[in-house]
Amino acid sequence: MHYYNEEDLTRFGEIGKARPDLFEKFMAWYQACQEDGALSKREKALIGLAVSVVVQCPYCIDAYTQSSLENGSNIEQMTEAMHLASAIRGGASLIHGIQSHNAHDKISM
């Protein structure tokens, strides 16, 4: 028993049952973002994978793992992308340590 169901990814369209106009706008935007542009589909799939890991979305992780492979990336490249995103997330936490230092200095002699 687990909270997330893999099959729910294929049911994503059901969100559009209520306020389909908003869902259609979202889908048009979402799909446009995936296409080749100044960045290649492969680069976008790797960005998508890295973001998926950081936002910890299991559906997105499944989808962008597959998408990365189907756009020619390999597990080393995918892992590097995930490390970078995770390192930024770690750094984003650690930089707040300066807040602590500032607070410490303010109340310390």
Partner: peptide, 11 residues
């Protein structure tokens, strides 16, 4: 594995 090939020209 169980996934489709990338676009031929890019690969």
């Amino acid at each position: 594995g169980a996934f489709l090939p990338a676009a031929q020209t890019a690969l």
